[in-house]
Design a protein around this nucleic acid. Structure first.
Lengths: 241, 241
DNA sequence: CGCTACGTTGAGAACAATCAACCCCGGTGG
DNA sequence: CCACCGGGGTTGATTGTTCTCAACGTAGCG
């Protein structure tokens, strides 16, 4: 894990946050240009490589993070090693919020990633200073909550086929939100990671991809990109129609 | 659904909220005695009978609710009727928070229940007036998020036996929080509801209860009460040990 | 060029779902 | 008062989707 100061030139009018390409998507989107310096002062940049851990469940939750590039996975473990991915995070997403003193889950980089790190105390001060930021955080938490409920529906009641279709469409929708292509969608995580996210084994994930491919619904491209040939069909499958 | 004004005597110093027995657990726990009148003015009381719907997914989200007595279930449906319970709510719990214009899930009374209803606009005003209340809401949302992640782990990776053990302990812990007995725990919902919460069928729920009973871990009492004879054993089961 | 991690495919097993019967209890009406 | 009805719960037999175990393929990287 590499650290660099988020604010490289002290006293500058232009904080590095000004240049942050995903600011509008993130927590910092709540702030005005001239307020960003305050945020920059509380933040430092983090760089992670594929597979680098960010923090582990149970560790003191001293920091919260905002993803600025790459992809991060968060997960919980059972004693015997069974793993449930609780989310994949992309630029603009936020993690580390915990009302307890320790993290409730572990986090690790899926690909080479960069993040902004905030000490919780300092973020706390920022939130008190900028109520808009706190409101933004509440909105983001509400979104996450709605997504979590959707995921419960998936985990508890959908078939393998429906799960994979839902997963691909979710990645596609989120890529679109970040201004990327909806259709050849990037799937940077392994089959095993996908399985742990959907409550399946890698074998079942692989078989289901193959099945959707043979049905002409998707095409598997190089470097983990997936062409969604039949979005309508995938959507119907994902809804159990 | 029966409605009555939450504040029965206008101008009284004592709002009905003063007498609210679960205030400390709820959103209103963030407020001082003298601030409660403001809250009372924005609230009205709701009474529901067993099975009464509170709202349906997709309906305009005009209100948010706080449970004051009884039990409420919230769930999402698939087109073909498959159902996933996303939560059971007890006194002190909050529901209806939605950043969208419509509810993301349906809610229905499990038992005869009472709730406080707040118009969203009015609650919004209260939150702006009392930042402590907004902070409380964020804390409650964080808790819910952590609970949702725990539930994902359960749905995606636990066996039927582990799910039932986790469920009983969760009910027991929450009853304790409300000052009730931890051990003969009230289980007011049907086997079918439990199944839809845990991603199982009623038959599997029933069989698993029987199995835990035969193992001497629980005892099934009248009126849906369950005696937890071996909490340690149940805990170990719930963690996959 | 070969190692290693990841992905795919196959065969068989297992856990939970499905289909079906029966029980139990509470409420209702004769 | 009791017979009937209906919903929920339990139990049994069988099926089926997904998991497990295993082998093999493939692509990236030192």
């Amino acid at each position: 894990m590499t650290l660099r100061p988020a604010q490289s030139r002290m006293g500058s009018n232009h904080s590095p946050c000004s240049a942050c390409s995903i600011r509008e998507l993130s927590l910092c989107g709540a702030l005005e240009e001239h307020e960003l310096a305050d945020v920059a002062a509380a933040a430092s940049g983090i760089e992670l490589d594929h597979g680098d851990p960010l923090f582990d469940e149970g560790e003191p939750a001293r920091y919260v993070f905002s993803v600025t590039s790459g992809a991060v996975k968060v997960y919980k473990l059972l004693a015997d090693g069974r793993r449930q991915m609780t989310g994949f995070l992309f630029p603009g997403d936020f993690l580390g919020l915990a009302d307890e003193e320790t993290y409730a889950y572990s986090a690790e980089a899926v690909t080479r990633s960069t993040l902004c790190r905030f000490a919780r105390r300092q973020l706390q001060a920022l939130l008190e200073r900028y109520p808009r930021m706190e409101r933004r955080l509440l909105t983001m938490a509400s979104h996450e909550l709605a997504a979590a409920q959707e995921q419960m529906l998936l985990l508890g009641r959908k078939t393998a086929r429906e799960k994979i279709a839902s997963f691909l469409l979710m990645l596609s929708r989120r890529a679109e939100l970040r201004g990327l292509d909806a259709s050849p969608v990037e799937v940077p995580m392994s089959r095993n990671d996908i399985g742990d996210y959907l409550g399946l084994t890698t074998e079942t994930v692989s078989r289901t991809f193959t099945q959707l491919k043979q049905d002409g619904r998707i095409r598997l491209l190089a470097r983990g990109r997936v062409d969604l040939l039949d979005r309508k069909g995938l959507h119907d499958i994902s809804e159990g129609l």
